[in-house]
Write a protein that binds this DNA or RNA. Structure first.
Lengths: 270, 270
DNA sequence: GCCTAGGTCCCGTTG
DNA sequence: CAACGGGGCCTAGGC
């Protein structure tokens, strides 16, 4: 097979373990992206312990030392090592190749033993500077609420964001128009019982500290159980639609407004 | 470049988008493993919404339709689609290739637009039947505790595993030697405040149902805060070492015992 | 280092 | 289908 036009990529095949190992070692040294497809077994030991019997897998070693072992099916890697692990490769016996990744803390070892390597791909000139923007995440929602707390309740004033109570953090500590204390938790997905319990935990902790405080749970939706539990615990629910809010925000940006202050309900007093 | 000895793998390179698209289409149709390394931008919209500007990436489409877009660094994929999504490929303009994955529920769309494809790798004969065994997970711990509850407390008898209270499940419902009710939660990692709160939630629910019950939290360790909170709430802590237990278990297996019953403390009454 | 909280978390289980 | 809990979760942020 003749391959031409190879850009930013090198490949190595064949059954000479020494040669493949040299290619891999070089890639690891230079911190190139490395992809190995082959037949291997995998052992992991650290917080847990696992053994994966022999099969065809795709192994990726990234430039930061992350290791991913993927089976031909399934979203998640079957074994892995997060970045900053130290990786070594060696030849075992005649054809065997052993890739070992050691993570310092927590101490964890991943050992991939290849019986057969179908292909080694090295990406040596890859450059990825592309910006990644996540639009409507919880962070953004909180930013918007911080700018315009009236979205949550008329007359609300944010006192502090990421407010600490004991060892916990609640998204907002605020005062309502009667000047009473309010703790606010924001969820960008449907709130379950867990979310209610989480806020209730904060409220209990606050009450233990003699705060007179009520809670508001802001979310895109509530499970039936969560709604009932909130009702029982006297926690107010506020339902919001982040996409709608974001659409307005984008539109406003497009038409030249610099900040969020102006686009909400004609407010202009900032 | 001449490539020989290609086993279970096909590769395609070059700048003819039509030809690459045909290779990819064929791989998708036949549900082969597909790896594309190239320069692309990515848009995602569904529960969230993101845009990834152009850069060099590795895109993996697995046999079950999982799609992973990996940057050259970082453990996690920057964009993805879990399995069972419907995937299409088409040529846009002259050189461009567009891969679109649609997930039905929740409705989510992932669009990868390649400006440049460095290499396409198709794994057409991959077979992975290797068994995966995770040794000391919470499941195994619970199995062991179920077999030998005295590891948790002298005289304890398990009444029910995965015991339901309302909408929740506690790991064990047991009776102590005084025949009092006990709820037991097991953690295979250091227990934090959340674990204590979780068990406390179960206890509250049980008390609401007029059970007279206390709680035991079994874990490999406890955070300072978790220990204090448990103390305050009257929840008993039991610390265990799963590896030690597992080591004995393996040793026992190795020396020919078939089951767990015999190896614990000489007990033999089962 | 520890701990808390979030994630397009994914995934299995249950009702 | 919705909801809960687990994961070697990982990762960021505070102390």
């Amino acid at each position: 097979m003749v391959v031409d036009d190879l850009k930013k990529i090198d490949i190595a095949t064949g059954s000479e373990a020494d040669k493949l190992a040299a290619t891999i070692k070089n890639a690891l040294d230079k911190k190139h992206l490395l992809v190995i497809i082959g037949r291997c077994s995998v052992d992991y030991e650290g917080r847990g312990k696992s053994r994966l019997e022999s099969g065809d897998r795709i192994v990726i070693v990234k430039q930061d030392g992350s290791v991913l072992v993927h089976r031909p099916v399934g979203f998640a890697p079957v074994n892995w090592q997060p970045g900053s692990a130290r990786i070594t490769i060696r030849v075992t016996g005649g054809r065997g190749l052993e890739l070992v990744s050691v993570r310092a803390s927590p101490r964890e070892i991943l050992r991939v033993v290849f019986e057969d390597v179908y292909i080694v791909i090295v990406g040596f000139g890859l450059s990825d500077a592309g910006e990644f923007t996540m639009y409507v995440d919880e962070e953004e929602l909180k930013n918007i609420i911080e700018k315009e707390p009236s979205l949550v309740e008329e007359g609300l004033r944010i006192v502090e964001r990421e407010y600490r109570i004991g060892d916990f953090y609640v998204d907002f500590y605020a005062k309502d128009k009667m000047n009473n204390d309010v703790l606010i938790e924001v969820k960008d997905e449907k709130a379950g019982v867990g979310s209610v319990v989480q806020l209730y935990k904060y409220l209990l902790e606050a009450q233990r500290r003699n705060m007179k405080v009520r809670g508001i749970l802001v979310s895109v939706g509530f499970s039936r159980e969560a709604a009932m539990l909130a009702e029982k615990l006297g926690i107010k629910r506020v339902e919001i639609n982040p996409k709608e809010i974001y659409a307005k925000y984008i539109e406003e940006k497009r038409t030249g407004e610099k900040s969020l202050e102006r686009f909400f309900s004609g407010k202009n007093d900032n």
